[in-house]
Design a protein around this nucleic acid. Structure first.
Ligand SMILES: [Mn+2]
Ligand SMILES: [Mn+2]
Ligand SMILES: [Zn+2]
Ligand SMILES: [Zn+2]
Lengths: 148, 148
DNA sequence: CCGATATTGAAAACGAATTTCAATATCTTT
DNA sequence: AAAGATATTGAAATTCGTTTTCAATATCGG
């Protein structure tokens, strides 16, 4: 089942309607690999397509997240962003966030996952979601800093 | 050097003044082990002591964080909280957050720290801060849920 | 095509964080 | 101890991303 089908199923299951605006927002989201905010997406949508209101972009992103195609992430700027989380090409991962150039590097680690399991069972805790974010300087920004 | 000295040094180094309000806010923070928000602290301060304004509590907490006695943490409710991070009794840790009863369990793991180091050097990334938070159900809330 | 129902989007409301500014406290210097 | 320079205080206003409101409009099953 592809992303568009997943979304349509979610709409149908909730008795919601399949509108032009929702299609446009979904396609715009699927066409970027960035960690986009509602505002980013609002601009992207209205750059290329017919006008869609900010509130609609916001509401559609919430629906996309509910449908399982995206999850909300928040780095250190107080803005919610949406991260793809459907399909093989978007497997589970965490982030290295460069505070200088704002680049976001994704990483994943089986050793980490195993250690998390150990911690969870030690505390009898059941995980629903988690986030692991490391803030600092990326290789390029470190080099620039050193050259000074 | 104890916490109060660390804070006074920070004030002196920045040419700031040592006021009654700042002393009251710092002492109130030092007397709780909770992950307090500005609002929590504002209530605590004004329950026990003479009146201190919300803005002053906020500004003082920023100073306390700058001085290295606290760090800002944010769980999933859009409110900044302050976590102790000074002294042996407050070593580096991460959080398990129960979405049901709001309990916060702290954990730390050397295996995790080692794996983080490996990831950092793999990407040439220099860490300045990081956070690892797992959201879900604590042991007690799982048991309550199962009994139904 | 016709309802019944959901959606849209501009504008307003929200809420935590942050700033403003005039009155006041602190601290250094006589 | 008093004065002068500078920082602080706190009530209120402002900011800013998020979320809601509501009247006009679109969707969709029959
Ligand atoms: Mn990502
Ligand atoms: Mn903690
Ligand atoms: Zn960088
Ligand atoms: Zn619980």
């Amino acid at each position: 089942m592809n992303e568009i089908e997943v979304f349509k199923d979610h709409l149908r299951a909730a008795g919601l309607k399949d509108t032009v605006q929702r299609k446009v927002v979904l396609n715009t989201f699927l066409n970027t690999e960035k960690h986009v905010s509602v505002d980013d997406l609002y601009r992207l949508v209205n750059r290329a397509k017919r006008h869609v209101g900010y509130a609609t972009v916001h509401r559609t992103m919430k629906l996309i997240a509910e449908s399982g195609l995206a999850r909300e992430v928040m780095f250190n700027d107080g803005v919610v962003r949406f991260d793809h989380c459907y399909g093989r090409e978007h497997k589970h991962h965490h982030h290295l966030v460069c505070t200088q150039c704002k680049k976001v590097i994704e990483f994943s680690s089986q050793a980490l996952d195993r250690e998390e399991q150990r911690i969870l069972s030690k505390h009898g805790f059941e995980s629903v979601s988690h986030r692991y974010e490391i803030f600092g300087l990326c290789r390029e920004c470190r080099q620039k800093a050193n050259r000074k």
